[in-house]
């Protein structure tokens, strides 16, 4: 079982309260998006679940066990990519597999498969500095997917992509998740993206960061993003979320582009 349970998690940096007594339950193999304006604590929440940040009070349980630090069955896709500049695309994607001692031949196969999946075939031998931001972001995603973690945490993983690639990647993620379901926390700025991908969308507000709504997304799986976007329920959900986020001081993009 891969469940995530945040129990009145409070996080402060000095006197700044970033997360305020936050409760959240995520079921095994559930896909939950976190939606909210910049600075509401989405990254901090993910980092706390990933064991990179310690909650000031309260706790996070993964499958009933308190989080005390990073664990091998959980990967966090960082908002700022964090590729190794001295490694090729191939080696970057294989980074986690190498650390876990996966045999070379198997690792090579899995790396190639993930590279194909994120649409970077032909770029295997390139270095990060030779890639666009969007391509680097996809390398980071492929690196996380390659180790096939039980918990996958993604921090605006499509933020640097153009609208078209972004939709392609959403479709890819849907099919990856259908093939090998995992427990997912997916941070995004985009209402559409959250609805298309998730079982639930958690909406946050800032100052201090807290959850203001938790919305179940009723679409059947397997899904097609295109079908969902034309469904009248989609428009309703979108309207509802838009209303929730509207009175935040920083507007959130309703479409594909992030508000940054």
């Amino acid at each position: 079982m891969a469940t995530i349970s945040a129990q009145s998690v409070q996080k402060s940096f000095d006197s700044l309260e970033v997360l305020s007594r936050l409760d959240l339950e995520i079921q095994d193999c559930e896909f939950v998006s976190i939606l909210g304006p910049s600075g509401c604590g989405k990254t901090t929440l993910l980092r706390t679940v990933a064991g990179l940040e310690k909650a000031t009070s309260g706790q996070i349980l993964l499958d009933g066990q308190p989080v005390t630090g990073p664990r091998p069955d959980l990967t966090l896709v960082f908002q700022n990519f964090r590729l190794l500049p001295w490694r090729t695309v191939e080696a970057n994607v294989g980074y986690g597999l190498r650390l876990r001692g996966v045999p070379k031949a198997e690792a090579r196969e899995r790396v190639q498969q993930k590279i194909d999946m994120v649409g970077l075939r032909g770029y295997e031998k390139k270095y990060p500095y030779q890639l666009s931001g969007g391509m680097q972001q996809r390398v980071g995603l492929a690196r996380a997917l390659a180790i096939d973690p039980k918990y996958l945490l993604m921090d605006e993983p499509f933020g640097a992509l153009d609208a078209q690639t972004r939709e392609l990647m959403q479709e890819e993620l849907l099919s990856i998740w259908a093939d090998s379901p995992k427990t997912v926390m997916f941070v995004t700025h985009s209402i559409d993206e959250a609805i298309v991908l998730s079982d639930r969308v958690v909406v946050m507000e800032a100052k201090p960061g807290r959850i203001v709504d938790d919305i179940r997304i009723p679409f059947e799986r397997p899904r097609s993003a295109v079908d969902i976007r034309t469904d009248p329920v989609f428009a309703e959900l979108r309207q509802h979320m838009w209303g929730l986020l509207r009175h935040e001081d920083r507007p959130v993009a309703a479409g594909g582009a992030p508000g940054e």
Partner: peptide, 27 residues
Amino acid sequence: RDLVELSHSFCAGEWALWRDILIPTAV
């Protein structure tokens, strides 16, 4: 520091940190 944290988040040990991050940085 971000790469050191990345390595940490992948549960890399000290030796892997040297091999993958510190030595290449120092080259």
